[in-house]
Amino acid sequence: MNIVVAIKHIPSIADDLPVKGVNVDFDSVDFVLNEFDEQSIEQAVLVKEAVGGTVTVVGVDLIGELDAVLHLALAKGADKAVKITGDDPAADSHQQAKWLSEAIKGMSADIVFAGVQASNDLDGQIGAMIAAYLDMPYIGGVSSVEVSGNTATVNKEFAGGVGAKYEAALPMVVGVQAASKPPRYAPISKVRQIAQSATIEKVAPTGEASAGITFKKMAPPVAAGHAEMIEGSSKEVAAKIVELLKSKGLA
């Protein structure tokens, strides 16, 4: 089985996020792997461990530092790593989805995993767009995947604690919210060993996205208002809340 994982390198929010012009100041920020992609790598490796096959991880190298992420993925159980030399830290999800799907086209993928969304744009589009470009079905918000023969059984989560189980014919694209097990830890000694021996395939970016996002302004949020803690018994608190709602003309 050919399992493909499309990943995304995004600015880290561990730092204060610096702004330059209408975008993030990419020169003074670290890039990290999107955390939903950690889940989708884990889910892909779990599927491989269950039914056999190879896991290929592919991502756009935005700032020339994707190797470390790919090495980590290999240490966690991926078999092949491919980087698309996009070299544009501002490439948005539309552009990245185009490049990724062009690269995946030649891989005769049976199943493609993507993180359900990424914390930089939060649009949750990459998986769906890859599916559209590859003409495959897409299910997002998935919290477990099992493959048997030519069918995948996936659990999808909806709001309000509701879940649904789907059976879908392969090939397909899955947007992973959480793997069925927490992502494993890759010991650094293994990562470093792989960093020395692994080869990463380089692919040139091809294709132009038909649409995308245009930034008009980027600014840190301004702190406004404050929280007021209402103290007292539950009855007193309830009374105060009602009063408050009335005073704001909401009830």
């Binding site: 561990a14 670290d30 830890y185």
Partner: peptide, 26 residues
């Protein structure tokens, strides 16, 4: 499978050089 808290700490140490998931520059 190690404790999730330990795993988070180790992952942060590997990427940020500290266990508190704070950026290096901070």
């Amino acid at each position: 499978e190690i404790d999730s808290g330990v795993q988070n700490a180790l992952q942060s140490l590997a990427t940020n050089g500290n266990w508190m998931s704070k950026g290096k520059r901070l």
